[in-house]
Design a protein around this nucleic acid. Sequence first.
DNA 1: GCAGAAGTGTTGCTTATCCGACGAGAGCGC
DNA 2: GCGCTCTCGTCGGATAAGCAACACTTCTGC
Lengths: 184, 184
Amino acid sequence: MATLLAERPARIDPRVTRTRKLIRDALTTLLAEKAFESITVQDVAERATVNRATFYAHYADKFALLDAMIREDVAVHLAEGDPLSVEDTRAMLSAVATNLFAFVGTHRKCRIDRDFEPQFERAMEAQLTEFLQARFEHCTAMLVSSAIVGASMTWRHQAPRSASDPIVKNIVGILVDGVDRGER
Amino acid sequence: MATLLAERPARIDPRVTRTRKLIRDALTTLLAEKAFESITVQDVAERATVNRATFYAHYADKFALLDAMIREDVAVHLAEGDPLSVEDTRAMLSAVATNLFAFVGTHRKCRIDRDFEPQFERAMEAQLTEFLQARFEHCTAMLVSSAIVGASMTWRHQAPRSASDPIVKNIVGILVDGVDRGER
DNA sequence: GCAGAAGTGTTGCTTATCCGACGAGAGCGC
DNA sequence: GCGCTCTCGTCGGATAAGCAACACTTCTGC
């Protein structure tokens, strides 16, 4: 394929790494104290011991920050067990979906969830799509991703919540045939 | 008196504060892992996610860093209960000495102590002298300080260690008469 | 002896962060 | 309506931190 992957800036200035970590940690601790909506950029910058202008040099606004944090979190959990290295498509998708369900399952306590579920969902979907593009073409990745995320959100709202395994098996079964035709 | 106290640089750049904290925290964690002598400036800088050149912009070498850390630690413990606000000289000195003994008593586990007790002692003495200069003239402060620190070090080496109260009472009793004549 | 490796301080130049200020918008009391 | 306050997002100029290189010392092995 002709498309280039996003060109890495070779080396990231350690100050950048540090600043981003400070900002993210700041939001994390603030979220344990109050709701996202009542948190201002000033709050975050102050807690991070970082200038407000510096915040804006890294994130467009507090929503972009939250988005980036969720996506990174999702990315880490998706990569667990290195599912992309699994040859068989069905097995790979099962592993990925299981990882996502596990992530969704553990993240129900966070304050963000109630107020910002749509944002949460979009971020997950975007990240999963990016993740799957290592194996599928963009369009397929998007479709698979939205299916899995959608299922996970439905499952998430069940009370009491059933086991995730049958659902994962079910949805992967549905996807896998169509997907085989779209694999790279 | 005519002497000016060290002129505060008005406002400290938050980057400076942050960098110093990173460096100090780095040395603290490193000391939990290995001996001070085997820790290099590179180690500290790396652990602190700070450039080596930046380290030297703040501290002359690793000894200066250790010294500054000890002194700050001492300063915090000395100020406990705000002994300087106590009018009566004897009571004030008792409080200060008690604070110092408490500090010395709790700091016996640190790895530095065995190899660097002289440095540890000098740093304490310097800090205590500075502290006491709020009440006494320089020369008196130095003398009192060296007496208290010396006593605390002797006490520290006792095995088993006796109660500190009688020793404090004793040394303050010896000092207080001479000191009264040197008070500002 | 000598060569190599590793740590030390220091330097000039680049870059990220800080600062103070600004106009704009939103909320709120009166 | 009118001020008042707070937050936002952005700007130009000042400053601390990063980087790569340097000469120097110390140690180690051969």
